Structure formats: C-alpha cells, structure tokens
Simulated assay, not measured.
Amino acid sequence: MSRPPLPPFTEATAIQKVRAAEDAWNTRDPERISLAYSEDSWWRNRSTFVQGRPAIVDFLADKWDRELDYRLIKELWAYTGDVIAVRFAYEYHDAAGQWFRAYGNENWHFDKDGLMTHRHASINDVAIDESERKFFWDASGPRPADHPGLSELGL
C-alpha cells in the first residue's frame, strides 16, 4: 500500500502531506485515519504509547468519545527527506461543555511507501471560553480552504 506524496519530501509535498493528515483527522474516522500509518506504527501521544493500527483505531475512537466537536489545524514546521515536523492546534469541548484549545508539535517519520512509521506528539490543553474559539467550520468535514491557518490566526 502506498500513501502519496512519498519521501523524499519537498516543501510542496511536505505541505501536501500535512494538509492531507489534517483533513483526515478532521473526519474523526479512526479506521480511515489508521490507513496512513504502517501496520506496526509506533506513537507517543502525550504520555500514552501506542503501537499498530488496531491500537491506533482504539486510541482515536476513545479520543473522540471525549473530545467533542473537534476541529484541527496543522502547519508545516520543518522537513527532511523522510521526516516532517508540524505544529498544530485543535479545539474541542468535553461532555460538560467546557471548551479547550490544545497546542502541540509532532514529529513524523515515513517509510518509502509514504506510511508513517513513528509519530511523537507533545500536546498541552488550555481551557478557553466558548467566546475565545477561533476554529469555525462544520465539524463534520475538513477545514475550508478560505479558513485561516495557525499563522494567520496568530496561534
């Protein structure tokens, strides 16, 4: 299975890979998202360690059971041949209605087929008032092309 764009990345293909990941995560479909990772992909997400597609699916399903109306924006930070670093922010609310904005960085490593073999994520959550939200689009789909990115939002 191949997931273009493939390494070695250029700036344009790294940006394309980042936006494809953002769009996929905004679907909140764990099965679909897991296909971007190698069968034995290894994650560190905050203090949680996950390995393999089935574990990724379980992790993401649990995540979106807790993080409601999730909306994510990713932005390329750096890249080399088969590595991409991103910064990101996402907004969600919990079951009690408290809104949060999570800020973070991820380092991704890809195999020759464009599947992510490693994902290291460092994330901090900040409680926000609903009036402080900045991510506004239909939560059932990807961020519209005309919605500002992180830099334009000053995040």
Score class of each variant (00 low, 15 high):
56 I>C: 01
70 Y>S: 09
35 L>C: 00
65 D>K: 13
122 S>G: 04
79 Y>G: 04
131 S>A: 14
108 W>D: 13
115 L>V: 01
30 P>A: 00
96 A>D: 15
82 D>L: 15
64 W>L: 06
108 W>K: 07
148 P>Y: 03
42 W>D: 11
60 L>K: 07
56 I>W: 04
143 R>E: 08
55 A>C: 01
3 R>V: 10
149 G>P: 02
91 E>Y: 03
7 P>S: 13
5 P>N: 14
38 S>G: 09
139 A>R: 09
116 M>R: 03
114 G>W: 07
151 S>N: 02
92 Y>H: 10
34 S>A: 08
13 T>W: 05
61 A>N: 11
138 D>F: 15
65 D>S: 15
116 M>G: 06
134 K>T: 13
138 D>G: 15
68 L>M: 13
58 D>N: 11
7 P>R: 08
25 W>C: 04
93 H>M: 09
30 P>E: 00
106 E>L: 01
38 S>H: 05
2 S>V: 09
71 R>L: 05
105 N>I: 00
124 N>L: 12
117 T>L: 10
104 G>V: 02
95 A>G: 12
109 H>M: 11
119 R>P: 03
131 S>G: 13
134 K>G: 06
116 M>H: 03
68 L>N: 15
80 T>N: 14
22 E>T: 04
70 Y>V: 02
70 Y>N: 09
83 V>L: 10
112 K>W: 05
78 A>K: 01
11 E>S: 03
8 P>D: 10
85 A>K: 04
91 E>A: 04
25 W>Y: 12
1 M>I: 09
34 S>V: 00
2 S>P: 09
42 W>C: 09
96 A>W: 01
76 L>V: 02
7 P>I: 13
86 V>M: 03
110 F>L: 12
82 D>I: 11
